[in-house]
Every structure is written in C-alpha cells, then in structure tokens.
Design a protein around this nucleic acid. Structure first.
Length: 286
DNA sequence: AACCAGGCGCATA
DNA sequence: TATGCGCATGGT
C-alpha cells in the first residue's frame, strides 16, 4: 500500500480506506473553511465531493478518517495529493505558533489543511467569490456544474470544461444568477480555452508571471489571482488579502506578516481567515 | 427592510 | 498612487 511520510497510517477496509493517526486533518474544518465550494454535507456528517472525475465520500470517525468508495489506486493518484497528505502540517503549525496570534488561530482549528484543487475550478470559484457570500457562491458553483458540466451516472456533475463554457453566450449564463460575474466567467473560459491564458503553466511559472497570466482575464485582480495560485496551483507562498485578512492584518499584525509565516503564508492565511471569520471576539473584542 | 458580501474596473485628482 | 463608486443578486 501507499508509503506516506510522517505517521499517517493507511488501512484498507471493505467500504474504502481509513486514514489513522492523521492528527492534523479535521474533515469539517478543512471542507467548511471557505476554500472549496462543492462538498456536500450528508445526513451522517460525512461529505461527498469530487475532483476531476473522481468521487469520494469522507467521514471523520473515532478510528480515523474514512474515505468511502475509494480504491487504493484513486487514493494514491488523486486523494493523497488533493488533501495535501504529503505535507507535514504538525511542523508548520509548530513553526507558526512562535507568534501568539498564529498560536491562537491554530489552536482554534488545528485540523485545517489547504486543499490542492484543480486550477481551472479554483479560478472560476474565486471569480464567483468576489463581493459575495459563501452560501451564494456554493449555489452558483453548483448550478455552473449542473448546467455546463458532464453528468455522471451517480448523479454527480463534473466541473465544466473551459471549452463548454466558452461556447455559451452571456444570455445562457443568466441561469447561474451570477450577476456581474457572468461576463468575468465567460472571459476566463474563452481565454483559457483559446490558450491565451495557460492554466497548466501556472504551477511552475515564476510567481510574477503567473499572476500576470491570470490578470489578463477581466474580473481577475490580485486577490482572485492569489486565491487561484494558492488553492489551485499549490503555491502556498501566495497570500490572498480579502476584507477579513485586511482587518486581521490591521488589528493583529500591524507590523506586517510575521517572519515565521514567510514560506507558508497561504497556509497561515487560511488559519487566520477561518479564525477571524468564525471565532467570536477574534477581532475587535480585545 | 436596509445593509453588505473571500473584488474589480473605471473615473477622477 | 490613491480614493470612491457602481455593479447583480440575495443572505442575514
């Protein structure tokens, strides 16, 4: 079976795969912290979602994290990477905790991991996220998949290919109810489909070039570009600044981002984002 | 029932 | 370089 570093232990069972000793991964914290918009919470507390054409159902249990309906091969080729299981989050959290604010944020939600999502999906998701609510972002992304994505036999939909979206007209995008973001999505689809914006290169391009490549798209500014690079290209040094992080910087880090976060700024950002957004009193109070 | 949301583009100085 | 405004839609 798969060799993983750190102490994560993988057990194979009938229903799928169990991750044991996975102390730095909380399913709800990771999937509900505003980085991915397509995971559905089921009645039993599990989450169902997909990346590419691979589906899984994931449940936190006392014995470990159960990935239902996942084969060895899918785990090795897809989910190990998607959940960033090769990265030592214990070491990152320890390093960040040198600063008291990070220490609090990490203690508040120690099970957050930064997912390695598909680049094109991350780009669209964060175009949609601008000046918007989490709840509504989820609805628009779901309709985007249902209207333009390929349906699977099990009722799931793939995230639409750029070509499929590029063929559509602005009028056809109206069903998404994405508002002024519809034309941004269309411009992204057309530039990606035509090769004018090379999403596959974003992971390896020098950071400045990668940003510039993304900002060729109307409706992609510095914040959406940083989100795409962080969540969709594995660029953990990227640091998206939205209204929440802006407030956090002003109040909690008036002297700038602490040095202990310099090589994993994006991961630090995710702990802080979730902390200030959902923990009462994290901002303003003290 | 206002107010505002994981921003951006454009106008103005 | 720095503000300020409108933008579509709908959640709180």
């Amino acid at each position: 079976m798969t060799k993983t570093d750190s102490e994560i232990n993988i057990k194979k069972v009938n229903s799928g795969i169990i991750l044991c000793n996975c102390n730095d991964f909380d399913v709800a914290q990771t999937l509900d912290c505003g980085q991915a918009f397509r995971w559905r919470k089921m009645g039993d507390g599990s989450y169902t979602g997909l990346t590419g054409r691979t589906v899984c159902n994931i449940l936190q249990t006392p014995d470990g994290i159960l990935l239902r309906g996942v084969t060895d091969r899918e785990f090795e080729e897809v989910w190990y990477n998607y959940f960033d299981l090769g990265r030592d989050y214990a070491a990152i959290k320890q390093r960040l905790s040198a600063h008291p604010v990070f220490a609090k944020a990490v203690e508040y939600a120690p099970g957050i991991r930064v997912l390695r999502q598909d680049s094109w999906e991350a780009l669209c998701s964060f175009i949609i996220s601008q000046n918007n609510h989490l709840k509504r972002i989820q609805g628009i992304v779901r309709r985007l998949c249902e209207v333009f994505g390929e349906p699977l036999e099990n009722g799931e939909y793939l995230f639409p290919e750029p070509e499929a979206l590029a063929r559509a007209s602005l009028e056809e995008l109206a069903v998404l109810r994405a508002g002024f973001r519809a034309r941004y999505l269309l411009d992204a689809a057309r530039k990606v489909a035509s090769g004018q914006v090379r999403v596959q290169e974003l992971a390896k391009l020098p950071l400045e070039e990668a940003r510039a490549e993304l900002m060729k798209i109307t409706g992609v500014g510095i914040k959406v570009a940083e989100c795409t690079l962080l969540y969709g290209c594995g660029r953990i040094e990227c640091f998206p600044v939205d209204v929440w992080i802006g407030r956090a910087m002003k109040q909690l880090f008036p002297d700038g981002l602490p040095a202990c976060a310099s090589d994993c700024a994006g991961i630090a950002q995710q702990y802080i984002f979730h902390y200030v957004r959902t923990c009462p009193g994290a901002l303003g109070g003290n």
